[in-house]
């Protein structure tokens, strides 16, 4: 088990280092931060001065070395655009993204799983058909459309919810539901089919033969076995809860990293782009390691091999 954890963490470290190289190179591949930052009427000499002031005149490997050294010591450099430590700029917004992602993940997981289980236990029945249609819609309708529709209905027409912003519990509802929408549908479908498979198994039959109540049969015996594919899908979707927030945050004026990321990329704010990508992806990579460890917890066959 310890070896398993160690090897997963080792892989994670390599992944993160790889990401750092890619993001460093990619950010610089097209477009020049200096060119985009300098007032257009500046003279060539003035442009050079600004590039020098930002350290962009040095060779790329040197810049990467400086960057990597900084990262190790927790210094991600200063954002060109914001004039503040990139990590600070990022850290001011990332918690907002995480809060929204966490709420959305919970909504997607609880919603998707309960709907999926309901569908599986009533397979072929009316609830199942309704759920299947909703799940299909969920995967076919883009989340930003859902977001706009929700806003038109609940803010403009009914006036129940504020359109946007982050101030109080109410403002979480529409962004979280929109962000969760797609995943919820996918999870519902996965849960349904995974549960249907498991419900056919001998051990579920035996659980019934043992005279256990149906709820116990479903949630203890069937669900935990159905959980692995559900979790696999969910862990893939975790990335979406953070990356998908770019659009949802935009629509609901959510003060997360969505907007920041796009701004940083378009303005070639290298330190900020690097920070955002590196920290976010490290976070997601570690989250995935966490999910892998969770598999082992759920299924002893993984734990013991």
């Amino acid at each position: 088990m310890l070896a398993y954890v160690a090897s997963r963490l080792g892989q994670a470290a390599i992944t993160i280092l790889g990401i750092s190289v890619i993001v460093f190179a990619l950010a610089r591949l097209s477009g020049d931060a200096g060119a985009l930052l300098v007032p257009p009427e500046a003279t060539p000499q003035e442009r050079q001065d600004i590039r020098d002031a930002l350290g962009l005149d040095r060779p790329l490997p040197v810049q990467y070395g400086i960057f990597l050294k900084g990262v190790v010591t927790g210094d991600f450099g200063k954002s060109f655009r914001f004039g503040e430590p990139a990590l600070e700029v990022f850290a001011k917004r990332f918690p907002n993204t995480l809060q929204l992602a966490a709420v959305a993940a919970v909504v997607a997981l609880l919603g998707g799983v309960s709907v999926g289980v309901l569908g599986a236990t009533h397979a072929g029945g009316m609830p199942d058909r309704v759920i299947t249609i909703i799940a299909l819609l969920g995967q076919a309708v883009p989340s930003f459309l859902i977001a706009i529709f929700l806003m038109l209905i609940f803010s403009v027409n009914l006036g129940w919810l504020p359109t946007s912003g982050k101030h109080g519990t109410l403002t979480y509802i529409m962004p979280a539901v929109s962000l969760a929408w797609y995943s919820m549908a996918a999870l519902a479908r996965m849960t349904r089919s995974s549960m249907l498979d498991v419900m056919e198994t001998d051990y579920v039959r035996l659980a019934r033969l043992k005279g256990l109540p149906e709820s116990r049969v479903i949630w203890k015996h069937a669900f935990r076995n159905a959980l692995i594919p559900i979790l696999t899908l969910f862990s893939l979707q975790l990335i979406f809860f953070v990356s998908g927030s770019v659009i949802i945050e935009n629509i609901f004026a959510w003060p997360g990293i969505g907007q920041l990321t796009v701004q940083a990329i378009f303005s070639r704010d290298y330190p900020l782009v690097q920070t955002i990508v590196l920290v976010t992806s490290s976070f997601l990579v570690l989250l995935n390691v966490g999910v892998d460890l969770l598999y082992a917890f759920i299924d002893p066959r993984i734990r013991l091999t």
Binding site: I148, M151, L152, S155, V156, G159, T163, I251, A253, Q259
Partner: peptide
Amino acid sequence: IVPEQQTRLAQIKT
């Protein structure tokens, strides 16, 4: 700060 035009339009209506 409300980046999305549709949201700003909703806001002026509400």
